[in-house]
């Protein structure tokens, strides 16, 4: 059974009063849950959070499922998201994704055997001028080549 840390619960309580409605706190609280639950939000966590926030489960679940930044499945330690929208594709993002998948021997969206890497293709991350790019957990890595991308991920491991 998932439970937030005391600091996390404190955070949720603060967020509940930060905005004009309690409901607004769902997104920040889900981010907190995701942070403390190894990068994803489990159904148990939704039950727990809706109890903590005193909001219907359906509301929390609706928000959770609507936004792409919440992971509904477990992810690896490094969540590598490669932008594959138009400008990035022109600059070889698809080839880069394939290269990364081959290098780390992992299928798209799945966690690698060692639990380290998940590689997903995502839509525009607002870094079109520095394509191709990837986001590893919270940080952007831009103007990548196949070699530099692999090197970056390996260094982060």
């Amino acid at each position: 059974m998932f439970k937030l840390s005391p600091a996390g619960e404190e955070f949720v309580k603060k967020e509940l009063t930060r905005y004009e409605t309690k409901r607004s706190a769902i997104i920040p609280c889900l981010f907190k849950v995701q942070e403390e639950n190894k990068g994803w939000v489990s159904p148990e966590a939704v039950t727990y959070l809706s109890g903590l926030m005193d909001l219907p489960e359906a509301w929390v679940n609706e928000v959770l499922n609507f936004y792409t930044m919440f992971n509904k499945e477990p992810v690896g330690k490094l969540h590598v998201q490669v932008c594959c929208n138009i400008s990035c594709c022109m600059n070889g993002a698809r080839e880069l994704t394939k290269h990364l998948k081959d290098t780390f021997n992992v299928k798209e969206g799945e966690v690698s055997a060692d639990g380290n890497v998940t590689i997903t293709r995502v839509e525009c991350l607002g870094s079109c001028g520095t394509a191709p790019m990837m986001q590893v957990n919270d940080n952007y890595y831009e103007n990548l080549t196949h070699e530099s991308a692999v090197k970056t991920i390996k260094e982060l491991m």
Partner: peptide
């Protein structure tokens, strides 16, 4: 003034 962080939806 406050910041509200979205969660990934165009």
């Amino acid at each position: 003034m406050d910041i509200y962080v979205g969660a990934g939806a165009y």
